[in-house]
Computed example of a mutant assay.
Amino acid sequence: MLWFNHLQKEAPIMLKHPFYKYSFFILLIVDIAYALGLIIANSAPLTGGSALAATVWFITFYWVPVWSAAAVIFFLRNKHINKIVLEWLIAVVFMALGNVLTDIVLTLLFDGHKSMGIFVVFNGLLWGSCIYFTSIFIESKKRVTAEKHALKQAQLATLRYQLNPHFMFNSLNTISAYIHTKPDLADEVLHELADILRYSLDTAEQQQIPLQQELTIIEKYLNIEKARFGDKLKVNYHIPNSLKNKTLPPLLIQPIIENAIKHNAKQTSLTLNITLSELSNGVKIVISDNGKGFTDDVLKCGYGKGIGMKNIMLRVNQLGQSKVLLSNDNGAVVTLELAL
């Protein structure tokens, strides 16, 4: 009886399992459909007696046996006993016992009911096997979906973490250049860098963040770069206020800006344009510059030898129904069409 007492203690926790919620309604639908099928097949009228019989079948043959078998199976799984043959046998036994109970109750309630006899074993085998293996199939599908989602999130996290040392290296070079000649400016840049790294850590587990939050970090990054380039660097924003509450993956725009600055660092003047517009299913982001543009090889494959644009391509591909387009128009143009 120890296992039964333990089962009683764990019952409230196990009942939170999605199986109980979904199986109740599925079994109810099966029971109603089966009862209606018998009524139609026998051309019998729908009476209070047939409704009572259907209720008995639902409670004693479907609901109670299935939930009881599930409770025992989940109990064994919690004890790391996970054997398909054993679980299948439990399902069959409980369905057969449920069939016996149903037979007894129907015999007591209806004078004309004929005992199913040995067929209770056949019914238990048939229904127990069907219900158990259907549940196993659904579980396996859900497990595969969950694993794919986990893999996708791990890939996205890896891509995000690739950017951090890359960006930090460039920023520390800027700080190093001014730490002796302009210590106040170096200190200011260091604080901006700290804010960006803190933001990167704070949003590590977030899939979406408000655009306004991303723009704040972009401005901090540009403050670091303006400390390096001075008036050579200009940035124009074309962003409707209605879009600032839109959400998008964090640190998606900044690497594009960083890439533009990196490849046009020797220019006497560099102007960046950040333009956002709304799409029917998301948002369109266009980042252009007046630099030397993309090479033919970059336009062909979508990225160069660095990790910046390749990283962006991989991250956007993970979003689904989103894309990155590269082009030249008096400089490089990167267009993100994000389905949000």
Rank of each mutant, 00 (worst) to 15 (best):
Q155V: 05
L215W: 02
Q212E: 15
R198T: 14
L243Y: 02
L276Q: 04
S200A: 11
K244F: 07
S176I: 08
T158R: 08
H180C: 09
H149V: 11
K152N: 09
A194M: 04
Q212I: 10
D202C: 08
H180L: 05
A146F: 10
Q155P: 08
P250G: 00
H263E: 10
I218S: 01
T181W: 02
L193M: 15
L163W: 06
H191Y: 04
N170M: 12
H191W: 03
N259E: 09
S242D: 12
L193C: 14
Q208T: 09
K246I: 11
T275L: 04
N170G: 10
Q212S: 14
N245D: 10
Y178W: 10
L185V: 14
I209G: 03
P210A: 07
T181S: 15
I224C: 08
N264S: 09
Q155W: 06
V189Q: 01
T268S: 08
T275N: 13
I138F: 14
Q267S: 13
T275R: 10
K234H: 05
Q212T: 13
S277E: 13
K141T: 13
R198D: 12
F167Y: 05
S176Y: 09
H166S: 08
S171P: 00
P249D: 04
A265S: 04
I253V: 06
S200P: 00
A186K: 06
K142V: 07
Q155A: 07
E205K: 14
N223P: 00
K232Y: 01
L193A: 12
M168Q: 14
H149R: 04
N164L: 12
P165Y: 05
A154N: 07
L197Y: 14
E188A: 12
P249Q: 00
N264V: 07
S242G: 09
L172I: 12
R198M: 03
I253Y: 01
E188L: 11
S200K: 06
T145C: 01
T203C: 02
S269E: 09
T268W: 04
F167V: 09
A157H: 13
Y199F: 15
P250M: 00
K234N: 09
L270T: 02
L211M: 00
K220S: 15
E225A: 03
P183L: 05
I257R: 01
N259Y: 03
S242M: 08
L252R: 03
Q207H: 11
L243T: 14
D202E: 15
Y161D: 15
H238Y: 15
I138T: 13
A154H: 04
N236A: 12
L193V: 15
T268C: 03
A186E: 09
L222G: 06
L151W: 02
L233A: 05
T268L: 03
T134D: 03
D187P: 05
D231F: 02
G230L: 11
K182C: 14
H191T: 08
R228I: 06
T181R: 14
G230C: 04
M168C: 08
D195G: 07
F167T: 12
L185P: 03
D184F: 00
P183V: 03
